[in-house]
């Protein structure tokens, strides 16, 4: 009996607490705050110095992806010929099937060129399955948004 009464009092007090500040928030009005390290969908980064993607299409991430959700092809970098870029090869086509991606971040860890990042993008729901196949321009777009949002800098390991 006593504990029941205690429970009743507890729910009552929580009601008053809830009236002052409920824990839940309305969603679109209060967008989800993600932490700095939040891993959303992967995106490709843009090298502003040379005005081209970091990605060389080296396929390391593709071989390491546990779900095999990416494909890429590379081509000769035209900017390498006129010496404006140090990259001999550059990505030609890049596709990630975001339906298959499990957001594990392995691709980011294995990439040697800082070309791929886990962006803060997480509201990618659509009405067609096709819509979640991201091509190079889409990936660069969400990657670029991530770059401007967080001021991302390539680590100086290369």
């Amino acid at each position: 009996m006593l504990s029941t009464v205690k429970g009743m009092i507890q729910t009552l007090s929580s009601t008053f607490r809830g009236l002052r500040g409920p824990v839940t928030k309305l969603y679109p009005e209060n967008p989800t705050v993600v932490q700095n390290r939040f891993m959303g969908f992967p995106g490709l980064t843009w090298d502003k110095n040379v005005d081209e993607p970091f990605c060389t299409g080296c396929m390391v991430c593709i071989r390491n992806c546990p779900t095999q959700c990416m494909t890429a092809t590379m081509k000769d970098n035209p900017k390498f010929a006129d010496e404006s870029s140090k990259r001999r090869k550059i990505v030609d086509e890049f596709e990630i099937n975001l339906n298959r991606c499990i957001l594990c971040g392995i691709c980011v860890n294995v990439c040697n060129f800082d070309a791929i990042v886990m962006t803060h993008e997480h509201e990618e729901s659509g009405i067609s399955r096709d819509g979640s196949r991201m091509n190079l321009s889409g990936l660069l777009e969400i990657g670029g948004r991530y770059q401007t949002q967080t001021g991302w800098q390539p680590s100086s390991k290369d």
């Binding site: 729910t11 929580s14 009601t15 809830g18 009236l19 409920p22 824990v23 839940t24 309305l26």
Partner: peptide, 9 residues
Amino acid sequence: ALGRLQLRL
């Protein structure tokens, strides 16, 4: 009322 009891909206 139930929502408020459970700290919901």
